[in-house]
Structure formats: C-alpha cells, structure tokens
C-alpha cells in the first residue's frame, strides 16, 4: 500500500474512533439518567421540538442582536461539515467521482470566517476572559483544517497534509469542545420538549 493509501485508511479509522468516542460520551451522559416529566403538559412538546429546530433557531436575541456573528457561525459550521464529508469522501476506497464543486466556495468561506471568529474571541475582553484555552485551540485547529481542505481543491498534492491533519482532528473532536457537534442537538431537543410541553414556545400552545 502507498503512503497515501495508508493515510486514507488511517483517516477512516480515525473517523470511526471519533464516532465511537462521541457515542461513548453520549452513553456516559445517559448513564446519569433521563428526566421523566411528571407534570401534566399544558402545551405540545412535539410543536416545541419543531420550534427548537425550526423558527426557534433564528427567533432569539442571540441571533437578532448578533447577526454577523450568527451568520458567520452558520457559514463556519456548514464549511466544517462539508470539509469532514470531503475528507471522508477522499479517504473512501471506492468513490463514485470527485467531490462536488460546490464545496470549494463553502470551504473558502469557512476558512475566512473561522479566523474572524477567533479574532473576535481574542479581541473582546469579556469573551476573552470567558474563554478557556480549548476555545482558542479548537477554533485554530479547525481553521487550519478548513484552510487545507480549501487549498486541496486548488492544489491536489495537499491531500497528504489534509488527511494527516484530519486524523489528528478526528481524535481531538471527542476530547475537546468540538464534541458539541453532537450535544448541541441533544440540548436543543431537551429545550424544545421542556418548554413545548409547558406551552411556553410560540406555536406550542395547547389547542384547548
């Protein structure tokens, strides 16, 4: 097997280890027990869930008061998921074809936005003090990953570097703050159900 072939295999193995790590963290979280609600619902939990992942993603002051940051965050996360998909695609032994061309502008946008978010965290005194080293490191790490993912679309020989960084990133994901890629959805589900059953979210009010 060539060195590149070995890297591809290791990349897939690292991605598997990442998923296993995240699954283990999730299992550990559930080991603390689930919360069973004993009060009678006043609203509709399902509607609360829909709100949490629909309108509620934008219907909050953290969006309306911080639109550039939130849009930056959306672009950044879209680019990260695209890059991860791109890397896995690249590492697969059998590929139907090259990655879609639409990835390139998305990756470029993410590679630009990431450092901007990092600069904001470093520049704003309260945000800087609120942060821990992982907040800076994870951002920087992902920025390097995104930059390489973009550059690889222009300079194919960078595939080796991209895969090497990807392997490290996959191992780091369950260890640091990037694990929120799974737990964000968990928390959002809890938010929607908790407030939806109370009828406290728009659209979750009981029909009665």
């Amino acid at each position: 097997m060539t060195a590149l072939g070995t890297l591809r295999v290791l990349t897939l193995a690292a991605a598997g280890a990442c998923l296993a790590g995240l699954a283990w963290l999730t299992a550990r979280a559930f080991a603390f027990g689930r919360r069973v609600y004993l009060s009678e619902p006043r609203g509709r939990a399902g509607r609360g869930l829909l709100y949490a992942f629909g309108k509620g993603m934008a219907d909050k002051e953290s969006v309306s008061r911080h639109l550039p940051t939130m849009l930056g965050g959306v672009v950044y996360h879209t680019a990260i998921f695209a890059a991860l998909l791109d890397v896995v695609w690249t590492a697969l032994p059998v590929r139907p074809g090259p990655p879609p061309g639409v990835f390139r502008p998305v990756l470029l946008a993410g590679a630009v936005v990431g450092p901007a978010l990092l600069a904001k965290r470093a520049a704003k005194p309260h945000l800087r003090r609120l942060s821990c080293p992982d907040d800076f490191f994870a951002n920087l790490f992902v920025d390097v990953f995104l930059a390489l993912a973009f550059l690889r679309t222009v300079i194919p020989s960078l595939e080796t570097a991209l895969l090497a960084v990807s392997i490290l990133l996959f191992f780091y994901i369950p260890l640091g703050k990037i694990r929120h890629c799974v737990f964000f959805f968990f928390t959002r589900v809890v938010f929607g159900l908790h407030f939806g059953r109370r009828g406290a979210l728009p659209g979750s009010e009981s029909r009665a």
Partner: peptide
C-alpha cells in the same frame, strides 16, 4: 441527569447570552 451533562458538553462560551441578561445590560460586568 443526561440533559445537564449534555449542557456541559454543549456550551461553547460564545457569550451571545450576555445581552439577554438584565444584570449584564445594566451593569456590564463579566
């Protein structure tokens, strides 16, 4: 319980909650 543990894994310290708090909006301290 699981939701609290998930919260510990979820908070990314984005700080965007600051403007939601009447203490912060009137006092401005970290």
């Amino acid at each position: 319980k699981a939701p609290e543990i998930a919260a510990a894994h979820t908070c990314i310290r984005c700080g965007l909650c600051a403007d939601a708090c009447h203490y912060y909006l009137t006092n401005g301290e970290l």
